[in-house]
Design a protein around this nucleic acid. Structure first.
Ligand SMILES: [Mn+2]
Ligand SMILES: [Mn+2]
Ligand SMILES: [Zn+2]
Ligand SMILES: [Zn+2]
Lengths: 141, 141
DNA sequence: ACAACAAACGCAACAGCGTTGCAAATAATT
DNA sequence: AATTATTTGCAACGCTGTTGCGTTTGTTGT
């Protein structure tokens, strides 16, 4: 596990530091998305807020994670499971926010449907954010 | 015009004050969405930041405006043109953010397509945010 | 038109998020 | 092991949004 994490960092040309290892580990042992604040809380050893911001920024630029805009105006981040290259990446799946547990997940299997806009509009990117009750919260009933 | 504005406020059971009239006027003479900051700048007479926040909150609760989450983590607000009742409302159209002029508009004619999620997920709300170049920016080329 | 009441406003203060500059600490390279 | 490059923690800052409270403004009834 620790080896795997170091490999990912090296593959992305990032020097391996304890902070980056810890944050990447958090993403790997989590199927949902993480906000800056989640990381701050879960990282047992204390890292400076700024370090977390810069780490997220670095992961983002390398295409290791992508950001998910949510309606409550808080940015979440999730691992890119497809092979996203540095720079832009294809984030063509739907994101789901559970109103019960608060989790945000990537629905990798659900593609954003094609959309037809009026003449004159050029589409660059489409984001689809679905809110509701997630699978595990429904099973708990 | 001034009469129309007062009518809207009264119809929504809001006492008519100079601040609310001004802000509502800004929304009416604008086809795109407005952020708190836009209002702060455009309101010629100076209103306190807090007043603008509270006014937006009031308009939102009355269903006069709806909020549009954007990828850059800034909340925009737009008039509800359909007859949205207090509380929830049907925001079933697509929102568009122009990367050239920065404007955010409601595409009232473009419905959010239906989406099928895996078993176990219950959908409450779907938001679709498209970014690209808007009609007027394309015509300027 | 006026008084009495209710609501909204401005101000001050505060908490949280995200950014930047810089010196110290840590990792990579030789 | 020494040198160099990178990252980190800290301090400081600006911006956004919220809350409490006293004052001002709007509404209601006479
Ligand atoms: Mn995703
Ligand atoms: Mn809209
Ligand atoms: Zn859930
Ligand atoms: Zn435009």
């Amino acid at each position: 596990m620790d080896r795997k994490i170091e490999d990912i960092l090296k593959r992305n040309q990032l020097s391996v530091t304890s902070g980056r290892k810890k944050i990447l580990e958090l993403f790997l042992q989590q199927d949902g998305a993480l906000a800056h604040n989640d990381i701050e809380k879960r990282a047992g050893e204390k890292f400076d807020r700024v370090t977390i911001y810069r780490t997220l920024q670095a992961f983002l630029e390398k295409g290791m994670i992508h950001s998910i805009p949510t309606s409550d105006n808080s940015i979440r981040y999730a691992l890119c499971k497809d092979n996203c290259s540095e720079g832009h990446h294809h984030d063509d799946h739907v994101h789901f926010v559970c109103s019960a547990c608060g989790n945000t997940v990537c629905l990798e299997g659900v593609m954003v449907p094609p959309i037809k806009l009026p003449n004159g509009f050029v589409v660059e990117q489409v984001e689809m954010l679905v809110s509701g009750v997630c699978k595990s919260c429904n099973m708990d009933v």
